[in-house]
Simulated scan of single mutants.
Amino acid sequence: MTKNSQSIGIFDSGYGGLTVFKEIKKLLPNYDFIYLGDNARAPYGNRSFETVYEYTLQCVEWFFAQGCPLVILACNTASAKALRSIQQRDLVARYHDKRVLGVIRPTAEIIGDLTNTKTIGILGTKGTTTSMSYPIEIGHFFPDINVVQQACPMWVPFIENGKYHGHEMDEFIRDDLDSLFAQSTDIDTILLACTHYPLIQDKIRQYLPQNIRLITQGEIVAASLVEYLSRQHWLDEKITKSGNTRFYTTGVADDFETHGEVIFGSKVKAEHVNL
């Protein structure tokens, strides 16, 4: 494996993080990146806190072994269940010069400005919703916002298996949206709190009233990363900037390339890794 010792690491349990990485790459085209999808163990959404932490830490340490000084958890479940422990425990104890960031805080910092009714709907995995990370984080910045959550446990398996182009999952989408609005009719803004979900946002919109704002995280996280690097000069200076991007998966490389090219919007050449 050829090392680029100063790349930004982008992690997801599977393909979904590519929706975030695509936006990051637009804003930071000259930076070097490594993307890792833990496809062999996806989805993470229904796994326990302990298991998600274990898997995520393994992947983060793999990035560190490649020399990455910064890793982005482009996965809501990993951000919800593992990020805090990694930041407060593992970085402090063993990786003082490394940084790991997630997707929840950047979203929580701005989402309250996007609602007029002060009621936000969250669509996510079971792991993300049960963690209560979004209500807690949004509450820090916007204490007057009402956050309503709905777990969508079937969405990621459909997306990971490439079965989202037809109508196979439409019933699940409709039922989960009905369950969300059954909790509150005041919702005017919905966050897709899983990086896989932008791949089906057109389907989701079919079952939403036109006045509902649908928020995806890619542009939010990308803009937040740019701002973060502008403040952390010591870290930004470490990252090499030759425009190189490499993709890895714990699953089947050919499958990753096929699905990844559709999501990422350009050719993806992947290598298999064992963790």
Rank of each mutant, 00 (worst) to 15 (best):
K3M: 04
S5K: 07
D12M: 13
G14V: 06
Y15S: 07
G17L: 02
V20N: 03
V20S: 05
E23Y: 07
K26P: 04
L27E: 09
L27P: 00
P29E: 05
F33Y: 00
I34H: 12
Y35R: 04
L36G: 01
D38V: 05
A40Q: 05
A40H: 12
A42D: 09
N46V: 14
S48P: 06
E50M: 14
Y55S: 06
T56R: 01
C59M: 09
E61R: 08
F64E: 04
Q66I: 00
L70C: 03
L70N: 01
V71Q: 01
C75L: 11
T77F: 03
L83H: 04
S85T: 15
I86W: 09
L91K: 10
V92W: 06
D97G: 00
K98Y: 00
L101C: 01
I104R: 00
P106M: 08
E109W: 07
E109I: 06
E109Y: 05
I110F: 15
I111S: 03
G112F: 06
D113K: 11
N116S: 11
T119K: 02
I122M: 02
T125H: 01
T129R: 10
T130I: 08
T130R: 09
S131I: 04
S131A: 15
Y134D: 13
Y134M: 11
I138C: 08
G139R: 10
F142C: 08
D144E: 10
D144F: 00
I145N: 03
N146A: 10
N146H: 05
V148K: 04
Q150I: 11
A151C: 13
A151E: 13
M154A: 10
V156S: 06
F158Y: 15
I159T: 02
H165T: 09
H167P: 02
E168F: 09
E168K: 12
M169S: 10
M169Y: 11
E171H: 15
D176F: 05
L177A: 04
L180C: 07
L180K: 02
S184K: 07
S184A: 09
D186V: 10
I190T: 07
T195N: 01
H196K: 00
H196G: 01
Y197T: 02
P198Q: 01
L208V: 11
I215N: 00
T216I: 08
I220P: 01
V221C: 02
V221W: 11
L225T: 04
R231G: 13
R231C: 14
H233G: 09
W234H: 14
K241R: 15
D255I: 04
E257V: 05
H259R: 15
G265R: 08
V268T: 03
K269P: 00
H272D: 11
V273Y: 11
